[in-house]
């Protein structure tokens, strides 16, 4: 019961921060901020790294981390892009697009399973396993694409990048759907509960007769799969894919997960928390964009600062709560 309450507290805190940011943005830059176009660009941008952050978050809840999400996304984007390019000429229907999407998702899942295998069966610490595998995935992406940008994606597919459903970009709807499905899996299913258990105490999990390896592999597979979705979304949005695209997202995804209340040692955190953190970060970043004299590089400074500040704030709050509990007992 205590755990459930704790997560709620965190979400309330995040929502307060979110409202505060929105209010600051609305008051100081009303002309730029309160506009449909601005919101549409914002949600489109955040869907990609938001998806990856969800994957990283699940791995962090299980006590690990996934540094390879960005490169899984790039690899799947390249594979899907090249398949579409090659098959577009020969076919007249849209079947090949679905095939390419399916293959991309499959590749993402396989990459994730590979990560999970390294972490569970071979017992490589998650950080190093995914560090190695990200070099590998990036390497494979470079070899497949010959190091160049894959572009010239058929229009039938890139249309998804610009389609709006009730004024909402498709990318954001995908992000919302994934968030809802994952929230359900993590909080309501046996598998989800076991991810928390694995993250809290891997030793106890083994004694409880839970298959540690299977849980870990599935957690990383989900991360790989979500990364593949992110890769497909970005392929549709920017109309191209490249092996080293978006390297700075790696840091960002970890930041979002921590900001969303995931504990770096595992065992704590929630999917809705991560999703709210994604929105907070995107608002912050779009808000900074409205000041043309602030260089883009300042964002790194602010993000690093926010990451450490959030860590310290969470630490202090948890400590106070523990002290209060002790007094009560």
């Amino acid at each position: 019961m205590i755990k459930a309450k704790k997560i709620d507290d965190n979400i309330v805190r995040l929502l307060i921060i979110l409202t505060a940011f929105i209010m600051i943005a609305c008051v100081t830059r009303p002309a730029n901020f309160i506009q449909l176009g601005n919101f549409q660009t914002m949600v489109k941008q955040m869907s990609e790294y938001g998806l990856m952050a969800l994957g990283v978050g699940i791995c962090m809840i299980s006590g690990g981390i996934d540094l390879s999400t960005v490169y899984i996304a790039n690899l799947t984007g390249i594979i899907a892009g090249m398949m579409m390019q090659n098959m577009a000429a020969g076919s007249n229907g849209n079947g090949y697009i679905y095939l390419a999407i399916l293959v991309a998702l499959l590749v993402g899942a396989i990459c994730g399973i590979f990560n999970g295998f390294l972490v569970s069966y071979l017992r490589i610490p998650a950080m190093l396993a995914t560090l190695g595998s990200y070099q590998l995935f990036m390497g494979i992406a470079i070899v497949i694409s010959h190091g160049s940008t894959v572009s010239g994606i058929p229009e039938a597919y890139t249309r998804f990048g610009t389609t709006l459903i009730a004024q909402i970009p498709v990318a954001f709807i995908i992000f919302l759907l994934v968030t809802i499905v994952l929230s359900f899996i993590i909080s309501k299913t046996k598998f989800g509960q076991r991810i928390y258990l694995v993250g809290t105490n891997a030793q106890a999990v083994k004694f409880a007769g839970i298959k540690y390896n299977a849980i870990i592999i599935r957690a990383y597979m989900i991360s790989g799969l979500i990364s593949a979705i992110a890769g497909l979304v970005s392929l549709a949005r920017i109309n191209s894919a490249k092996a080293d695209f978006g390297s700075s997202y790696t840091m960002q995804t970890i930041l979002i997960a921590v900001l969303g209340g995931v504990h770096p040692d595992g065992g704590f955190g929630s999917i809705p928390g991560i999703a709210i953190a994604v929105v907070i970060l995107q608002i912050l970043s779009s808000y900074l964009n409205m000041f043309p004299n602030i260089s883009n590089y300042y964002r790194n400074l602010i993000w690093g600062f926010v990451l450490i500040a959030v860590l310290i704030i969470n630490f202090v709050i948890n400590k106070r709560k523990a002290a209060k509990l002790r007094k009560m007992s």
């Binding site: 970890i254 590089y297 790194n300 400074l301 993000w303 690093g304 600062f305 450490i308």
Partner: peptide, 10 residues
């Protein structure tokens, strides 16, 4: 990771 992002920003 956080501090290197800060140093990079500086």
């Amino acid at each position: 990771l956080g501090t290197s992002s800060i140093f990079n920003g500086i």
